[in-house]
Amino acid sequence: MFRALSTAALGMSAQQRSVDNIANNLANVGTTGFKRSTIAFQDLFYENIASSKLGNAGNQNSSGPSLQIGHGSRAVATIRNFMQGSVAETGNALDLAVSGAGFFQVELPDGNIGYTRDGNFSRDATGMLVNNSGLPLASQIEIPTDAVAIEVSQNGTVTALMAGDNTQVELGQIELAKFSNPGGLEALGDNLFAETESSGMPFFGEPGSEGFGVVRQGYLEQSNVDIVTEMVRLIEAQRAYETNSKMVQTAEDMMSVTNSIKR
């Protein structure tokens, strides 16, 4: 009964982690480029209470199934789903979406590279193309002050139409990165991810090249969170939490009956 108490308590804790994760998914249903995640669970170690001996035709004992009792479950990992989100038209020339595989690269304050699917870019005071957090693209694309129009081709080439002479000037090339295991990326917040040993080293390439998606100007990738799916998962987690809490109450009732036995 003491084991039942601790096992049920661990089950409640595991389901609480699941609810926390679902809440984060739902909170980011409107976040550009957000990728939903799920919690992975593992059962804990098992205790061998007893082993059985089964007789065979030769009246010799052989080992049979043993009596094992588990000790509950625990949350062990966050699994992120990088399925493509829907692409919505914005009409903003500096809004970019990757249709297919690949991440935009931005330079972090410490000099490292962050990876993102959020293509909501803008021009800062110095003319650099930056994201919403003010982090510049790793390609270091600078937009001239006298540019009257910006065009980004599907292969990531950025050009500007200059005022006065109506000439097209190439400003730079957007390069994408992809990973053999994007699920191993570390979420940094601000729609950014960082490379880890689990994700592997990044592969770089121009948009539209083999294995990479294309860049669509004037569009943004939406969150891939499905509200209906998250609500179903929330109900399942809630029911599991309630069941584990009833198990705690049942174990306490059994202990109370045992303590009340009179000799």
Score class of each variant (00 low, 15 high):
1 M>Y: 12
2 F>Y: 14
3 R>L: 08
6 S>A: 12
8 A>Y: 02
10 L>D: 03
15 Q>D: 05
22 I>L: 06
24 N>F: 01
25 N>L: 02
25 N>P: 11
29 V>Y: 09
29 V>D: 02
37 S>N: 10
37 S>A: 15
40 A>I: 04
45 F>A: 13
46 Y>F: 13
47 E>T: 15
51 S>H: 09
56 N>C: 04
58 G>T: 11
58 G>M: 08
59 N>Y: 08
60 Q>S: 09
68 Q>M: 08
70 G>L: 06
73 S>K: 05
76 V>P: 00
78 T>S: 11
87 V>I: 15
87 V>G: 04
88 A>K: 15
90 T>Q: 08
90 T>I: 01
91 G>A: 07
92 N>A: 14
93 A>W: 00
95 D>V: 10
100 G>P: 10
107 E>N: 09
108 L>A: 07
110 D>F: 02
114 G>E: 05
118 D>Y: 01
119 G>Q: 05
132 N>R: 14
132 N>Y: 00
132 N>I: 03
136 P>C: 09
137 L>N: 01
140 Q>K: 15
141 I>S: 10
143 I>A: 02
144 P>N: 09
146 D>F: 09
148 V>C: 00
151 E>Y: 05
159 T>F: 00
161 L>S: 10
163 A>M: 01
163 A>D: 13
164 G>W: 02
169 V>D: 04
171 L>P: 05
173 Q>C: 06
179 F>Q: 03
179 F>N: 10
179 F>W: 06
180 S>Q: 07
182 P>N: 09
185 L>H: 02
190 D>Y: 01
191 N>M: 03
192 L>F: 08
199 S>Q: 05
202 P>M: 03
208 G>Q: 04
211 G>N: 11
214 V>Q: 14
217 Q>C: 09
223 S>N: 12
225 V>T: 13
228 V>P: 05
231 M>D: 06
233 R>E: 13
238 Q>P: 00
240 A>G: 11
242 E>Y: 03
246 K>A: 10
248 V>Y: 02
249 Q>S: 14
250 T>I: 13
252 E>L: 07
252 E>S: 15
254 M>S: 09
254 M>Q: 12
261 I>M: 15
